[in-house]
Design a protein around this nucleic acid. Structure first.
Lengths: 343, 343
DNA sequence: CTGAAAGCGCTAACAG
DNA sequence: CTGTTAGCGCTTTCAG
């Protein structure tokens, strides 16, 4: 392996000069720089990054911890992170936890051992106090997840108000019997979306009926199953608000199987605007999170920390947008495929 | 930052001994080991991995280059890779290229600069000769992709025979007018699947009609558009074989919009068995790749290379399986949700 | 503008 | 079984 010494020797300069050339230091005579560069080319010299990282004690790599890589919500955020990171000379690597906390703790080691300069967490499985402590010692940002009460730098959405908006849309369409399929209620996110649902009903003087609220686990199957349960009760609802798109689609599948038409018999609204929601039949009305922007914001927050800046504001909440498609009957059936679809 | 010297000093031993304890060397007296370990705990010592990596010239990290993270095919393979990697003390990091060759070349730098011990490529965008040269110098495995003629270690499926099987299934159901929506034909994968389609027809004395073959680009939209084209020709087909599930679903959407029923009017078969294929309406008949196994195999091939073993066999082709669901009418409509769905 | 030299923290001979 | 010590390749003062 050709190293800096070899370059220096052949170029008749010192290793220090080679190093300077490599870092575009201003204090190198043009002729010297040219000579060094040509020798670098000639020898096909590649700096040993391990040595550099060791010496500088930084890697220029940031780690994004994802609970699952096959989820368009995460990939959307990651795109924003990558965009912003590359602008600032950082490389993004992903650590997949497969929704396993153990793996999450394992990846944190990379941070502690300085193998990555900073970390963005796209989940909230780890112990809150642990995360808090970690964030005091290392550059860390929570995206989507947000720990109530803890001042850990984070970027999230307002689950409550965006759910409220979604449900209000249904109310405005004339629905009064609206069911809700929640996510697991141990997650703040699920509770937030549930809360928004209740607020919308209450603000419109609609009674919240417990029977109409069923807890799913964010999977398609749970949406399907909870929908069957909901449709088995005496006074069936005319609309469903599911806490995510997967469950919304499961619910629609169940409704169809029971012989109901969506949206004419039952209107459905989801949450997340996953890639498939526009392709589903019927195309799903859903709440879109500003994923790219969340990624950017997270990365910026992380950069500030890595630069040692004091964070004036460390918790950001971004706006969601309700995407009205066919599943809620809120707009006339029109030609599909007229919006940009992501795969 | 507490370092080995600090531990050594407090434990009254040399740094060498601390290092030995850290590496479970047998040649340390139990008492000494205990003492060192307790001091490590007491000081909350974390070895500086950058130093270790630099010194040992290895990172124990392998990099998986993915063209897109929101693709269940890739995530399936990655799971297999991770499973096998962790068994052998390696950590897996993902590099997302967003289907951009530039990014791919950029990630290769990590390998060249020794920031990762090996690399698994889940794509084939880079120049074949470049990959070949790279693989001669560094541990490298191609998964799914496979470069015709080049002896780069790879794990793939037989696109030709698995497509042939899929199309033969349609033929066995009585179809003789079978259309094919291909992927971009500059990819060997697309050509392979196309070839399998033709072989199936020819082996059954069915004429291959050019009009029935349309080139898509693996997106849902292209499946939709090509299907519209296909259904516009005079003698419309009774079955469609799409080169992937996304296009198959797009085709089904088009068929539905044209007033055709799937599968009674038109049977559809896809390829990949992506997560959504079982949830689609109708559930999609498709070719499942042995993703997990492919991941395992790739990682094993990589491990052999990293251990400097000579590869006796470097190219592996694994078997696919045809999953018969509702979209081809090949089995009676039955209760859904009876198979394990992945999200 | 350039060179000499001192390490960064750890590992691995080698010597005891 | 344990300690001493020489670097790994690079960056970065400090002199010149």
């Amino acid at each position: 392996m050709v190293k800096m010494r070899d370059v220096a020797k052949l170029a008749n300069v010192s290793v220090a000069t080679v190093s300077r050339v490599l870092h575009n230091s201003e204090t190198v005579r043009e002729a010297t720089r040219k000579k060094v560069l040509s020798v670098i080319e000639q020898l096909n010299y590649q700096p040993n990054m391990l040595a550099r990282q060791f010496r500088r004690n930084e890697t220029k790599i940031i780690l994004v911890v994802v609970p699952s890589i096959m989820n368009t919500v995460f990939s959307g955020i990651i795109e924003g992170i990558e965009y912003e990171a590359s602008k600032h000379g950082y490389r993004v690597l992903l650590g997949n936890t497969n929704r396993n906390v153990e793996n999450e703790y394992g990846l944190v080691e990379l941070l502690k051992q300085k193998q990555t300069d900073g970390m963005i967490l796209l989940s909230e499985r780890m112990d809150a106090d642990y995360i808090k402590a970690l964030s005091e010692e290392y550059p860390l940002v929570l995206a989507t997840a947000y720990i109530e009460g803890l001042k850990v730098p984070s970027v999230s959405i307002d689950n409550v108000s965006s759910s409220r908006d979604a449900v209000e849309h249904l109310i405005n369409l004339g629905h009064r019997e609206i069911a809700h399929i929640t996510g697991p209620l141990q997650f703040a996110m699920s509770r937030g979306r549930y809360k928004g649902y209740k607020q919308a009903l209450m603000q419109n003087n609609i009674e919240v009926r417990n029977m109409l609220v069923q807890e799913g686990d964010y999977t398609f199957e749970s949406g399907y199953n909870q929908m069957l349960k909901i449709m088995a009760i005496e006074k069936t609802p005319t609309a469903i608000f599911a806490a995510n798109d997967d469950m919304a689609m499961g619910a629609i599948k169940a409704a169809k199987e029971l012989g109901h038409n969506v949206p004419t018999d039952i209107a459905v609204v989801g949450f997340d605007n996953i890639g498939f929601s526009s392709r589903f039949d019927p195309a799903l009305t859903t709440v879109a999170q500003p994923l790219f922007e969340m990624g950017q914001k997270s990365m910026n927050l992380l950069l500030l920390q890595m630069q040692g800046e004091p964070l004036v504001k460390s918790q950001y909440v971004l706006e969601c947008e309700l995407i009205v498609r066919d599943s809620c009957g809120g707009k006339k059936k029109e030609k599909v495929l007229n919006e940009k679809l992501t795969t």
